[in-house]
Design a protein around this nucleic acid. Structure first.
Lengths: 295, 295
DNA sequence: ATTTGGTTTATTATGGACAAAAGCCAATAA
DNA sequence: TTATTGGCTTTTGTCCATAATAAACCAAAT
């Protein structure tokens, strides 16, 4: 059966939304809510039905209004709002990076399914999509081969990353002066500066900024295969950062400074400077990742 | 239930194998057969059991020998030996390339399942793996978006292909003189020449040669992401060639000549020549593909 | 030391069932 | 006359069941 995480997340979001209304205010229409919450109207109706039952919403049809003071409906726990696919992804990354799964291990769908408490279907679906990340390989009728989060994985990953990013950075530098991307990158420079200013307190905010920065560069000349490839980088770094906290503050500070140099180079439009700054940054990012891999 | 295409293919292959033996010859051991046929001993035993029952094989244990003259067991039809996953792939490619599915179409799993006569599970599995080809995109809880086999798909594909192939070709040219790849590429040159010689009769053999040629170049410096990417090229060209026969002989002859120039350039070790030949060939390959895409 | 038989066990591939979520159309209120 | 709602249908996500395949075991035989 499908999980109802969509409904539960929508329910919680609706509570947040209601919290901003005053007692007696009219609710937005079902269609409006469906757009706001990013779910179908069917789900909106289910949410409203439950809220009405619990007394958080009064009336029916076009006469629906909020009773925020009276009924404080209980939110669903965060865990109940995360889609099964995301849970499986997390479980697998954990198995791989935290438990340090050995290169060459055969992945057993059944075992993972039991371990994560889901049906094999969901594991299979995940593995089939995860295959493109280059860490596993299917052996028909005989499971999957885990190739390992190894140094050579990191090297191959960065070889491609460097090709792609250099190309995008060059395209960025060649952008016409009236491109909106210039304003965006200047805004990102400000964000970098202010993060650097409060680095001690906010260093863990870097991960998100990093992602937005590189995706902005890629967007200078969009190519679906490059965008897809960047998903791999994003995923790997997401979990890698999350579980490898050693020197995080230090690492991030260095990276921010590299980004700033990189941004200056882009703003200068000098191809040589861009190439230099881009290469320097990727080299240090590669070193960071390699230090976390298995030999 | 699983299909028994593995068994049926193994059975047919065993018949071929037996055909090369003489009446009364001893059969290879079960283990040897399992290696030859690329299946488990369990399946080998099932094959042998059936053959024995049908009289194609006499005796048991170590005293098993062939009765090729007597019993001519019937082969299974080719269609019964192709794995379901391959059938689904073919069906989908047909839907896409032959029926000219419109960009923006929503892919309906249920409908495809009915159309192909398989369960939705198999369709989903295919789509999840096919996603990396950049032609479809998942919209959670709402099917898949078919992005279309469009000109911009071809352009993006070739932008990456050119980056990858140039890099590999350079690595190839820089190979040390004692690398075994030099002999391999010279062998390929001979194959090209002999194909060119009989082009009128054998022009459809080019597709396979083309594939081996480019994969050889990629192997100069192996990178899993590049190898994976070449799978996309292979698949697209496989079906494209199969259904778009217009000017096939002419197209292939041109491509063979381009390959030969390309090979000469590699053998010359001149970076400039290699770049020129590589670019020229890819440009013409791109044109060919673009002519087949939707606007 | 290898091979087979006889069994048993484990895992993968595929169909099917069903609730959740999305989508559709006509009736209705503003 | 247009947005909104109610009733209904279709599709997706997930579980489970089961046959095909792989794999393991071990004793007997060459």
């Amino acid at each position: 059966m499908k999980t109802d995480t969509v409904f539960k997340r929508a329910f919680n979001d609706t509570l947040d939304l209601i919290a901003e209304l005053r007692d007696g205010d009219a609710l937005p229409s079902e269609n409006a809510l469906s757009v706001r919450l990013n779910v179908s109207r069917t789900t909106v109706r289910k949410v409203l039905a439950m809220l009405t039952e619990q007394g958080g919403v009064k009336g029916s049809g076009r006469q629906r209004h909020v009773r925020s003071t009276v009924a404080t409906s209980r939110r669903f726990a965060e865990a109940e709002t995360v889609p099964l696919s995301a849970q499986v992804e997390k479980g697998f990354m954990e198995w791989m990076l935290r438990d340090n799964a050995r290169p060459g291990t055969t992945i057993n769908e059944l075992e993972l399914a039991r371990q994560f408490g889901v049906a094999t279907t969901s594991i299979r679906e995940f593995l089939n999509r995860f295959q493109r990340f280059g860490l596993i390989e299917r052996r028909p009728n005989a499971g999957w081969d885990f190739k390992g989060f190894t140094t050579s994985f990191a090297l191959e990953l960065f070889e491609i990353r460097e090709m792609f990013e250099l190309r995008s950075a060059m395209a960025f530098a060649a952008l016409s002066d009236d491109s909106p991307l210039w304003r965006q990158i200047e805004a990102l420079r400000e964000e970098h500066l202010s993060l650097l200013n409060e680095i001690d307190r906010r260093y863990h905010d870097f991960s998100d900024l990093d992602n937005r920065f590189h995706r902005l560069i890629n967007s200078a000349r969009s190519n679906r295969f490059i965008d897809d490839f960047y998903d791999i980088i994003t995923l790997i770094f997401h979990y890698h950062y999350q579980w490898n906290k050693r020197d995080e503050r230090q690492r991030n500070e260095v990276a921010i400074r590299e980004h700033l140099t990189y941004i200056e180079a882009l703003l200068s439009r000098s191809r040589a400077m861009v190439e230099l700054a881009c290469r320097a940054h990727l080299t240090s990012a590669r070193e960071t990742l390699i230090r976390a891999t298995a030999r």
